[in-house]
Structure formats: C-alpha cells, structure tokens
Amino acid sequence: MRTKIFPISLIIIVSVIFVIFYKGLQNSNVYKPQIGNQKNIPVFIAKAFETEEIFKSEDIFEGDKFYLMNIWSSWCAPCRDEHKFLLNLSNQKKLKIIGLNYKDKKKNATNFLNELNNPYDFIFSDTDGTIAIEWGAYGVPESFLLYKNKIVKKIIGPIDQNSLLEIKELIQ
C-alpha cells in the first residue's frame, strides 16, 4: 500500500503544478493596481494651476456631482492623443473635468492648453508628483471618474473611444 501512495501523490502534485503554470500563462505579467469600486477619494491640499492659490480637495469636489479627475502633462505624448476625448466630454453638462497638471512647467502647460483648447473646469498643479501618488496613480495620463466622493472608475493610460462611451454611459 505504502509503495502506491508515493507515486500517486507525486503524479498528483506534478499535475497540479502543471495546471497552475498553465493558468498562470494566461495572466498578464504586468501589474496594474486595482481599486475597489467604493474607494473614497483622497484628501489633499494643492495649488491651483492658474492662480497658484492653495486649495483643499474638499473645496473642489462636491457631493452629488460627477467629476473626471485627469492627470496630464504637456510633455506626455499620449496626453495629446486623449485631449480630443476630454474636449468632447467637457460638453457634458453633468460632468466636471478636473485636471491635475503633473510635473510640468507652467509655460509649457499653458502653451499646450492654448494650442489644443482647455477642457478643464479646474486645474490643480502637482509640481513634484506627490499628489498623483495620493491618488494611487503612477503614470500620465490617468483618469478617475468620481461620484459622491468615491472613485467609480479608473482609467490607466489615455482615454480612448471605448472608455469615452463608458464614461458617458456611467454618468447617465
């Protein structure tokens, strides 16, 4: 009896390892942080982009409105690509778009907005990138759809046609 238990358990163990490796192959090896849907938005203090006045986050985000928090920078190429979608979204009455200007020079950022138009209702500036970290972001661009001070949806990378439609659907 003892002689049989060993080979059988060995084969079972090896098979389990095989199945796990097989399943593991289908997962992506690039890590993207996930955010639970009901996550509260962070509380922070930051300078306004234009006036350089200091604002608290709760001054900007009111309870029962939709906000799109968009992290952008003039030096980031994908931000240029997503800009037309932001302009499109800025026509939505139910949605306010808040920008977070990430590690940028004011002059370059202003030129960027003058050239491509300004979709933002309000812009914070984040000169050393630490406010983006409060949001759990790690690159530009990243966008967060907010409702009732909760993060409803998170988009890592530029907004595209699909995410545009999704946002429109969510705010209806």
Partner: peptide, 26 residues
C-alpha cells in the same frame, strides 16, 4: 517601481520613482 516593474524605487530614475522618493522623504 510600477513603471519599470522589476526595479526598486531606489534604483529607478522614472518620474514615478523620483516622486515616490520625494514623498518618502516628506
């Protein structure tokens, strides 16, 4: 580091890593 995934923040020079270093000091 989340940008170059396989490097530590200390060793990385990506924007994210630089910000995170600042944040840790802060």
């Amino acid at each position: 580091c989340l940008i170059c995934q396989g490097q530590s923040i200390h060793d990385s020079d990506s924007e994210f890593a630089i910000s995170l270093k600042t944040l840790v000091k802060k």
